[in-house]
């Protein structure tokens, strides 16, 4: 069997979610019962690992394009520009008023359609879950819709001769998993160190191709997404019972005594 020094150039798609800044307190809109997303949206930190991994894998393969795909309200693109500034070549955004209230399955349908628009995608990378919705089912749902195999919770990824080799997180440690391409892989946070965009990268990102699609452009029936497609209804939003307020002390040197006394009271020490 011939051993190639380099892999063939590999096109990679990264699913990139644009979310409200987690530093701002989140809120549910009491009318629509969805997460308020009217402010500026940023690239989910969880997705920066996927973007970085994609850039490194493309480089290791000796070339290939990294494409971002995203679904967001109001044609928001700020988060995608961040990913383009890191080095992704182009982006595809699906935005449509009919997508309001779309669940994880509907989101996966949209992302899968957008991925279908990308020529020759061999590898699809996602985060394991978003930082705001954290359903954690979208990677597997995207793979299922595309009819691709998938490996979730990757803590390392290598591609050699058309096969992806992954260390997959488990409760006890990790499993080594392999799979022929094309394949969907979800990456854990911390898998690589995401680069900071350079000034040059930020400037270049402004003119990189960013396709904006409606549902119709993406070829998706509006009835299969949004509130109508969900098959679920929010019947209550309530405050969780608050924990009884604790005792908080400024440490004046007696903090340790207070902890020891607390543990004694519980008969721990």
């Amino acid at each position: 069997m011939p051993i190639s020094a380099k892999n063939d150039p590999m096109n990679i798609v990264v699913c990139a979610k644009q979310i409200p800044d987690p530093a701002e307190p989140g809120a549910l809109d009491p009318q629509t019962k969805t997460l308020k997303r009217d402010g500026k949206l940023i690239l989910d930190e969880s997705d920066m690992y996927g973007v970085e991994m994609a850039l490194q894998l493309a480089e290791a393969a000796g070339g290939g394009e990294v494409t971002l795909v995203s679904m967001a309200p109001d044609n928001k693109v700020d988060g995608l520009r961040s990913g383009l500034a890191m080095g992704a070549a182009k982006a595809v955004l699906v935005s449509d008023p009919a997508l309001a209230g779309t669940d994880a399955l509907g989101t996966a349908k949209v992302l899968a359609a957008a991925i279908g628009k990308v020529e020759g995608a061999q590898l699809v990378l996602t985060a394991t879950e978003s930082s705001d919705g954290y359903t954690g089912t979208v990677p597997e749902q995207v793979a299922a819709i595309l009819g691709m195999p998938s490996i979730t919770f990757a803590k390392s990824i290598e591609v050699r001769d058309g096969t992806v080799y992954v260390k997959r997180q488990t409760d006890a440690g990790y499993d080594e998993v392999e799979c022929p391409l094309p394949c969907v892989v979800s990456v854990t946070a911390g898998v690589v160190e995401p680069r900071y965009p350079s000034f040059k990268g930020i400037m270049a990102a402004k003119s990189k191709p960013l396709d904006q699609l409606t549902l119709a452009d993406a070829g998706i029936d509006a009835g299969s997404v949004g509130w109508a497609g969900g098959g679920q209804e929010i019947v209550g939003i309530e405050e969780a019972p608050a924990r009884e307020a604790g005792e908080i002390f400024e440490d004046d040197g007696s903090g340790v005594d207070k902890i020891v006394a607390y543990l004694e009271n519980l008969k721990i020490v």
Binding site: G231, Q232, E233, I234, G236, I237, E238
Partner: peptide, 8 residues
């Protein structure tokens, strides 16, 4: 916050 959701 607790959100209660029903299958429809």
């Amino acid at each position: 916050t607790l959100v209660r959701t029903k299958f429809t």
